[in-house]
Structure formats: structure tokens, C-alpha cells
């Protein structure tokens, strides 16, 4: 105990330095770094940051075209803690609603703490354009608040995605964040381009690879997998060449709810952990109806017995 307490005391100033540095660079201007666009839920964290392009609500905000595969009302919450530093935490909530041929989504994400806060509000829409092509778009409003007087004004931007269902078990995705020319607004914002391929190797195994490039940085490669290990229990793993990050995670489905936990290492700064919960309203309704039907049948049976 004494030993670990000493280490903590020694690490604490180091932690403060890291936080100060990270926040300093983040608050310099909007070009300085991430996260501006949504980085993904615990599921994505566990698979190396890749988007599996399926009907997962969280995937829909990594690539908006995935909304097209969403046929039920979903909502979820996610908390990500970077490097065990609570000041670098991100809280996210999302909602997706199918509406006719399209599917709508909304996301709110908040990064930072009281002295430095970055918030993202996003409204998304996705739909199936043809048998092969699905597309989606999201309008984002990003604000940044610091204790200093140099608060950045809100930035309005958009992101868009396309998913190509090449074969039943093969999908490709393209995602572009912030294609709006910076000449059209006062504050600059970096752009990102991602292309991904997802292969369903069998009924229980997904494998995916993604190439990502962010303006001002080199290209990253991500790979990951998701495996249905036992009934509704999933195991995930991945690698992200940005910071040589090894990732792993687990997920469990319990009726209409799903819980995911993900971890990603950083070659210098430590481990990022993430937890998310997702709820499928249709499944809840389905269960409620099922219970009601069962209850009604019991009542009928009881009444029949009384008679």
C-alpha cells in the first residue's frame, strides 16, 4: 500500500502535466487535434476504432450510411475515459429512429471538464439508395468553452458516409468528416477521410480493416474483429497504427439492452477505457407485448377455469 501510494504521489504531478499539456494543445485552436467527430462507442474502441458498418446505432454516427440498416428505435449512452484521467473523459448519448424509408439519428457528445469543454451536437439521416448503395449525412455543431476569454465560436460542419454492400458478407464504407472548405467560415477545422472494408467470415466472426487520414497527419491503418464467443457474449480485438494501439473489448446482449466495454492502449500515455449501453425500444415493446399476451392468456385460462 505504501509502495503504491508513493507511486501515485509521484505520478500525480505527471498526470497534471499531461492533462495541462493535452488541454493546452486542444484549446489552442480547432486545428489542434481530436476528438471533434465522434470516435465511437466501446464497441469501436474494442475493435481498434473501426466501424463494422452494420445496424448498430453507434456505427451510424461513425458512418451515417449505417442508419439505413436501422429498423428500430435505439438509444444509448457511452462514457470514454482517456488514459485514466477524468478530465479527458467523453460522455455521449445517441438516439436513432426509423421513419419511413429513411432513418434519423441524433447525437450529443461532451468532452473535457468544467474549465475546458467541447460539445458536439449532431443530427443525422441515412437511407438506402439502391440495393448496393446506402448513404447518410450528418450536420454537426461543435462548441468549445474554456475559462479563458478566447472561447472559440461554434462551428457548423457536416460529415457524410456511403456503404457499399458488395456481397452479402462483404461491405465497404467511405466516411468523410468536414468536407466544407474552411474559407467559408472564420474558424478552421481539420478534415478526415476514412475507407473501410468489413468481411463476415462466418455467422459468428466479423473482420474489418480501415484506412484513415486526417489533414496534417499521416495515414493510419486499423484492423479489428468481433467474435460471437458464447451465445450473446462477444469478444473483440484490434490494432490501430495511430499510436500503435492494441485494443480489446467484450459485449453482452441481455434482451433489449446491450452492454459493451472496450480498452485501447496508447504507446506512451496508457490505456483508454470505454463503456456503453444501448437499448432497442422495439425489443422492449416486443417483450412488453409478449408479456401482455402471456398475461392475457393466463387471465383467459383463469376465467375459463373459474367458469
Amino acid at each position: 500500500m505504501y509502495f503504491s501510494g508513493t507511486i501515485l504521489k509521484q505520478l500525480f504531478p505527471l498526470q497534471k502535466i499531461i492533462v495541462s499539456h493535452l488541454l493546452f494543445f486542444l484549446s489552442l485552436n480547432c486545428l489542434a487535434g481530436d476528438p471533434f467527430c465522434f470516435k465511437g462507442s466501446a464497441r469501436e474502441t474494442g475493435t481498434g476504432g473501426i466501424c463494422l458498418l452494420d445496424n448498430d446505432t453507434w456505427s451510424s454516427f461513425k458512418n451515417q450510411a449505417a442508419l439505413a440498416f436501422n429498423h428500430s428505435i435505439n438509444f444509448g449512452f457511452n462514457y470514454e475515459n482517456r488514459f485514466g484521467i477524468k478530465e479527458l473523459g467523453t460522455r455521449t448519448a445517441c438516439l436513432s429512429i426509423p421513419y419511413g424509408k429513411v432513418s434519423l439519428g441524433a447525437i450529443y457528445s461532451r468532452f473535457g471538464y468544467s474549465d475546458f469543454r467541447r460539445e458536439l451536437f449532431g443530427a443525422a439521416c441515412g437511407m438506402t439508395l439502391s440495393k448496393v448503395i446506402s448513404g447518410g449525412i450528418q450536420i454537426d455543431y461543435i462548441t468549445e468553452k474554456t475559462i479563458s476569454e478566447y472561447n472559440n465560436p461554434g462551428i457548423l460542419t457536416c460529415e457524410a458516409g456511403v456503404i457499399l454492400t458488395i456481397k452479402e458478407n462483404l461491405k465497404a464504407g467511405i466516411h468523410l468528416f468536414n468536407p466544407i472548405p474552411n474559407s467559408l467560415r472564420r474558424s478552421g477545422l481539420i478534415s478526415e477521410l476514412e475507407t473501410s472494408v468489413v468481411l463476415k467470415l462466418n455467422e459468428s466472426l466479423f473482420a474489418a480493416a480501415e484506412i484513415k487520414m486526417r489533414m496534417g497527419q499521416i495515414m493510419f491503418i486499423k484492423t479489428g474483429f468481433e467474435y460471437d464467443a458464447y451465445r450473446k457474449f462477444k469478444v473483440r480485438g484490434g490494432f490501430n497504427s495511430e499510436n500503435n494501439s492494441f485494443c480489446f473489448g467484450i459485449g453482452y446482449e441481455a434482451g433489449p439492452a446491450r452492454i459493451d466495454i472496450g480498452f485501447a492502449t496508447h504507446e506512451k500515455l496508457g490505456v483508454t477505457s470505454s463503456i456503453s449501453m444501448t437499448f432497442d425500444i422495439n425489443s422492449i415493446n416486443h417483450k412488453v407485448h409478449k408479456d401482455l399476451r402471456k398475461e392475457r392468456a393466463d387471465i383467459n385460462l383463469y376465467e375459463a377455469w373459474q367458469l
Binding site: 456511403v162 467511405i174 468523410l176 468536407p179 478534415s191 478526415e192 477521410l193 475507407t195 484506412i211 484513415k212 487520414m213 486526417r214 489533414m215 496534417g216 497527419q217 499521416i218 495515414m219
Partner: peptide, 25 residues
């Protein structure tokens, strides 16, 4: 360099579109 092209040409319509987005470092 990473680039993405999307080219559209619907038969019967007199309009074609070519779009590109590329990021380089």
C-alpha cells in the same frame, strides 16, 4: 495520400457528376 472519387452518371439524364476528396501529407 488517401483519396476518394465518386462518379455519377444516370442514363437518361443529361448530367454527369464527378466528385473527389483527397487528404495528403
Amino acid at each position: 495520400l488517401l483519396l476518394q472519387d465518386i462518379n455519377l452518371k444516370k442514363s437518361g439524364l443529361p448530367v454527369s457528376l464527378w466528385f473527389r476528396y483527397a487528404i495528403y501529407n
